[in-house]
């Protein structure tokens, strides 16, 4: 039964990475900006939770959401003037912001890390026969599914969602029709910030020690997933994020402990293979018309 157990954990972690991938993909769709500083939003959420350990979970989660959306909007103001700049410029800018934030965290909170205990209770497991499922796995999966569904509904059923999809497909024409560029960009960052907050809350349950580089590896792995899935489509990007989280968790659990250092090489090797064989992404459709958000 351990394989089934590991599969459940892998699905839960995959769901988290799927959320991160959507957060990155939303902003990319509209701004053509791969935001390497996205992880620092997750870290900010983590520190917020850590400093509110004693308070009620509701207050802590609300504060986490506020902190993440706040930082996302600060990033939006920094990156907004770069719309239309060369990919290299944007990439370097997001790296710079990422390093800056990590070092601010280092100065402010030190390198030893702050533990989060707000929702620690979710680490308890329920037993189904020999199977032990932690609550966090169920909660993570449910929350991720709800947020992905919510994001899809927002994009497909609301006016601002339609404006975002139009801006992602053809920004200039969208503006000619009266779509407000800044509002669309800000909306994508707010939505991405909200998803980052959810990731903070869920991730700190499984991995409670928040360090200055807390969000870096999550972002990096999710980005790998986004690349595997195809950066141009939100659905396949989230699927890619899910796949990488799933693989990471499952392979990590199956690998003998003394071989665990090979895990990243295995994953990155897969990515290289995917890029060689299917440069547009594993789940990208053929040459059909592409809708980016």
């Amino acid at each position: 039964m351990t394989l089934l157990q590991q599969l459940i954990d892998a699905v839960a972690l995959g769901a988290l990475y799927g959320l991160v991938a959507v957060g990155i993909g939303l902003v990319f769709g509209i701004m053509r900006l791969v935001n390497f500083a996205y992880g620092e939003i997750i870290t900010a959420g983590g520190y917020t939770l850590a400093y509110l350990n004693g308070s009620s979970p509701v207050v802590a989660i609300l504060a986490c959401v506020a902190a993440c959306i706040g930082l996302a909007l600060v990033q939006e103001r920094v990156f907004r003037p770069l719309r239309g700049a060369s990919p290299a410029t944007m990439l370097v800018a997001t790296f710079a912001v990422s390093f800056l934030l990590q070092n601010i965290y280092l100065l402010a909170f030190g390198s030893r890390g702050k533990p989060v205990s707000t929702l620690g209770g979710l680490n308890t497991a329920i037993s189904l026969g020999t199977l032990r499922i932690r609550w966090i796995s169920i909660v993570a999966l449910a929350v991720a599914a709800a947020l992905l569904a919510g994001t899809t509904l927002l994009l497909n059923r609301t006016a601002i969602g339609l404006h975002m999809r139009a801006a992602a497909a053809d920004f200039r024409t969208a503006r000619i029709l009266g779509v407000r560029a800044n509002r669309v960009i800000a909306s994508s960052f707010v939505l991405a910030g909200f998803l980052a907050a959810a990731v903070s809350v869920l991730l700190t349950v499984q991995n409670p020690l928040v360090t200055p580089d807390y969000g870096v590896s999550v972002t990096l792995f999710a980005l790998v997933g986004v690349v595997v899935g195809g950066l141009d489509r939100l659905a396949s990007a989230s699927l890619g994020g899910f796949a990488i989280g799933f693989a990471y968790s499952l392979v990590g659990a199956r690998l003998p402990t003394d071989k665990s250092q090979y895990l990243p090489s295995l994953l990155y090797g897969t990515v290289i293979l995917v890029l060689l064989l299917r440069p547009a992404g594993l789940f990208a459709p053929g040459k059909s018309a592409v809708e980016r958000v």
């Binding site: 006016a159 339609l162 404006h163 999809r165 139009a166 497909a169 053809d170 024409t173 969208a174 000619i176 029709l177 009266g178 779509v179 018309a289 592409v290 809708e291």
Partner: peptide, 24 residues
């Protein structure tokens, strides 16, 4: 403006294209 080359949103439905017209 009706731009040269039409610039309709090929990935969206006809109705969604029309709804985008309401933005202005």
């Amino acid at each position: 403006l009706v731009p040269e080359g039409r610039h309709i949103f090929a990935g969206l439905t006809v109705e969604e294209n029309l709804r985008l017209g309401l933005a202005g």
